[in-house]
Structures are given as C-alpha cells and as structure tokens.
C-alpha cells in the first residue's frame, strides 16, 4: 500500500546559532511512518537556511511578520493554500503563535488543519501569569512579583533573597545581587519592554527540559525528557541527552492532564538540591531539539500532524534514554539566483 502524501507548511526555517525548530520538525515529518510529507516552508527573511535545503523543503513562501496583523497573514496563507493545497500548518515561533491560534478556525474551514493550544492556554502560560498558573494547576513555580515603578522596587525586593532574577515583560533576564543592580536592570528592562518588570526567585540547580504533545483532552501523546550537556553563549542547547526521571515525567503528565494542553510544547524546569522541580517557563510550541525525541522513538511532529487531521493517535509510552543529540553547523553552497528569487518574488 502506498502511503498518503500530505502537504505540510512549516515555519521557523532559521537553522542558525539560535535555531528555530522548523528544520528538525521537517526531519521528523520526512521520517513519518504514516504518511509521506511534501513540505512547504514559510519564511520571514531571505537568509533562513531552510529555504535553501531543497532535499527537505519543496517550496518556500515568505510570509508577513506577526506585527503586520492577523488579516494580512490570512491573506497570504490563502494565496499559498491556493497554490499548494495545504493539509496542515505547523507554526514554530512564539511570536507567531497568537496569530495562528486566532486563525485556526478560519484555516480549518478552508481545509487547512492546525493543532494548537487554545487562546486561554496560550495566555495563562505567559511569563507574567506564571505564579497564577502554578497556583491554579498545583505546579511549583519560582516566586515572582510584577513591579510597575522603580519606587516600588525596594519594597518588593524585601520579599526575595538575593540573587534575584529580573525579567523583561517579553524577553531578557538578568541575575542581580543587590539593590543597585536590581534598579539598573529594572530601568533597562522597563525602557526596552515597558512595565511591568518581573522579579523572580533565583533557583539554583540543574536545568531539565521536556518536550511533549498533549491531545487537548488531558492525555499525554508524547513526552521526552532531556538534560542540556553543552550550552552556547546564547543559552541554547548544543548537545543534550535523553533521560528518564519518574518524578519529572509525572509532573509533565500532570501539566497535560490539568491544563488539557493541545499541541506541542516545551517545559523548562530547574531541579534544586532538595530534588524539587520548579517550572520556569512553558513554550507553547515544539522546541528546536525535537529531533532528539524523534531519534529516541517519539515522532512528535508526525503525531501532531495526525492529531491535526483528526486521526486517532496511539500515545507513545516509552523511549530510549541515554541517546544524545549533538548539533553541528554545515555550510551550504547557494546560487545567487535562488537568493534573488526569494528576495524579489517572495517564493522559491
């Protein structure tokens, strides 16, 4: 029997030193057992490496930045769908998730499927809402407090012990050791991202990451645990190892069950010396190291595609721990003509 061919659009083709998840997601899709994937790349800039990887990406279209708005993105996706007849779209950037969640039902009525968290799930896991999230779902999170004015900083700092992590509303984090550093970090972040600035308890320990997939009904379809072994100066894993930890796996399943999470995700945990896991961050999409999950037996991109299409998926229940991923970089030779094409027509 020949496998069905699915046309799947994927974003995040920026396989650079701080990589987007697109290329590893595509590798997972290409190795899918249930279907053959025809990949449509969706790119923002002309130099995203994935655009030029023709053995992985059949055709790429540029799409507008999330800041241009949902309506503009929808117009572009309609055009692409007319050309390519998309079955599924897998968005992979934090910044674009909101737009795709908003468009999910309209896309579905055109026959384009997605499998994403709900707007509520997306919102409540935002950095600013983490303390409430922890309370609501009974998950340990570091203590944190939003600060709106520099005048209140000293007062709020009394609730913490140094060092304290000062976090910007959207991005950035800085560890500070005294009031003066905290104030300067506060002013920096407030100027860059606006208020509030978030003060967070500093948890000393080892970082663990989980990638997984929830079916939207509380069931765990996939979950793979990883410890970073080598971290770049941008804080990205350049090497990591699949591990098993009953407690962490239980926590992950608890997260999926309680939130009824739908779609891929990455959870970032810190384990302190008492062995307590603190949930530090929830990324509402597949992480760039997802190919490790594929490599140890849980093809998350494939399962996500099937769930998007409304098919029944048998949950993965095990994987081979002790396997590692080691990232490497690779220089492609690209014809100028190709760069010209994507730059001038927005298609390649």
């Amino acid at each position: 029997m020949t496998k069905q061919i699915l046309t799947i659009a994927v974003t995040g083709l920026n396989a650079i030193d701080s990589p987007g998840p697109g290329v590893p997601v595509i590798r997972g899709l290409k190795e899918a057992k249930a279907f053959n994937a025809r990949i449509i790349g969706l790119s923002y800039e002309s130099l995203e490496p994935g655009i030029y990887m023709h053995e992985l990406v059949d055709k790429t279209y540029q799409i507008p930045y999330p800041s241009s708005g949902v309506e503009v993105l929808f117009e572009r996706l309609k055009y692409i769908h007319n050309q390519e007849k998309l079955d599924v779209i897998i968005p992979n950037f934090d910044a674009e998730m909101f737009s795709f969640i908003k468009l999910a039902s309209e896309l579905k009525s055109m026959g384009v499927h997605t499998f994403l968290p709900t707007a509520e799930q997306f919102e409540e896991r935002q950095k600013m809402n983490l303390p409430d999230f922890g309370k609501k779902y009974d998950i340990t999170v570091p203590a944190s407090e939003a600060v709106f004015t520099a005048g209140k900083l000293a007062e709020v700092l009394k609730e913490f012990e140094f060092p304290v992590v000062v976090k910007g509303k959207f991005y950035d984090a800085k560890i500070v050791y005294n009031y003066e550093q905290a104030l300067s970090a506060f002013n920096d972040m407030a100027a860059k991202w606006g208020v509030p600035v978030i003060l967070q308890e500093f948890v000393r320990g080892t970082e663990f990451d989980v990638t997984g997939l929830g079916d939207g009904k509380g069931n765990t379809v996939a979950a793979v645990l990883m410890r970073k072994q080598y971290i770049t100066d941008k804080g990205k894993a350049w090497g990591g190892i699949a591990i098993t930890d009953e407690k962490l796996l239980k926590l992950t399943k608890h997260f999926i069950k309680e939130t009824k999470w739908g779609g891929g995700f990455e959870l970032e945990f810190m384990k302190d010396k008492e062995g307590e896991f603190y949930l530090m961050e929830i990324n509402p999409r597949i992480p760039a190291w997802v190919y490790l999950a594929v490599g140890v037996g849980q093809n998350i991109p494939e399962a996500l595609t099937l769930l998007a299409l409304g098919e029944k998926v048998k949950p993965y229940t095990s994987y081979e721990s002790g396997k590692m991923f080691i990232r490497y970089s690779w220089d492609m030779i690209v014809e100028l003509k190709e760069f010209e094409m994507i730059s001038t027509t927005g298609e390649l």
Binding site: E45, S46, T345
Partner: peptide, 15 residues
C-alpha cells in the same frame, strides 16, 4: 539594499 538583518517586506505585498 538587501541586508540580511533587514526584514524583507516582499512577503507582505498584501499588507
């Protein structure tokens, strides 16, 4: 000028 860091707007022609 096409610059790698510059957002390319050709994808946004329907904006």
């Amino acid at each position: 000028k096409l610059e790698s860091s510059m957002p390319n707007k050709f994808g946004t022609r329907t904006e």
